[in-house]
Computed example of a mutant assay.
Amino acid sequence: MKKFFKKEPTETKKSFFKRAGQSPKQKEKQTLRINDNEEKEFDSFFAEVIKSFPEKTSSIILNSYGKSKERAEKVLAKSKTQFDGIFDEFLQGVDAKTRKKCHKIVHAASLTAAIIGCSPIPFSDAILLVPVQLTMMARLHKLFGQSWSESMGKSLGKEIVVVGLGKSAVGNIIKLIPAVGTVTGAAINATVASTITETLGWVTVKMLNDGEDIFEQTMTFKGQFQTLFKAVQRSGKKSK
């Protein structure tokens, strides 16, 4: 009997991978490739965004990059458990393959935004989020084969950022307190920055997937953003 129970899981596992057309090693390699692709997307995204900042700002962000990224990744991990269900529900009608392609871009943008949120620059977040969001939206438009207007995107991006200014300002004020406030303030801002960015990203994906023009239907875009962002905020409050 012992021999039977030892053997059965192995055979089941083998048959599963056989049906899937992949061995366990192939599955592992595929996972590594996915992670590697996401990392490459992030590196490319972050480099593009950082070039758009003034040299002094870029230097501060890069000097604190290691610690900021570590904190930012923790923020995103927590947000994932809280908000993925809401985003999944919102994205009904967007097929899995499209979501997967878009996820790399949205994740890269959210992580970049969170890193900026963790940066020791008081009152930086709202201003610096705009280039992050413009880069994200431009890449998503390119992915869908749609034209992109940077000037109109910049105007829209600034309006969207205002939605998160209330909470973000709280974090920035805490940052002004020497030594004690930086980490606490960073945590607040990283959450706000990444949540605004991810929400904006998925609204962009949904509208592009539905064949809607963001610039011709700005009211729809803003309305969808506010609805989704409020749902995310409510979920965040419930989980506390």
Rank of each mutant, 00 (worst) to 15 (best):
L76Q: 06
I105Q: 00
N189M: 06
S110E: 05
E73F: 10
A114Q: 10
K97D: 13
I121E: 01
K80A: 15
C118F: 09
P131R: 12
Q146R: 14
V192A: 15
E70D: 15
S194R: 05
I115C: 02
I174H: 01
A109R: 05
S79F: 15
A190L: 03
A193P: 00
K100P: 03
W148D: 09
H107Y: 14
S64T: 15
Q146P: 05
V132H: 07
A126D: 06
W148V: 09
V170M: 12
K158E: 12
T57F: 03
V132D: 09
L76W: 02
G185R: 10
K175A: 02
V94D: 14
D84C: 00
G185C: 13
H103L: 10
K67V: 15
A186E: 06
G166R: 05
N172A: 06
G171I: 09
Y65K: 14
G93R: 13
H107F: 14
D95G: 06
I60Y: 09
M137W: 02
F87D: 00
E70N: 14
L134F: 02
A108L: 10
D88E: 14
A96I: 15
G171W: 08
D88T: 10
H107W: 11
H107P: 04
G93L: 11
T112S: 13
V183M: 07
G166K: 05
Y65P: 04
E73K: 14
H107L: 11
E150W: 06
Q133P: 00
M137E: 01
E159G: 15
L134I: 01
L62V: 01
V106E: 00
A187M: 07
G166E: 00
I188F: 14
Y65I: 12
V161M: 08
L111P: 02
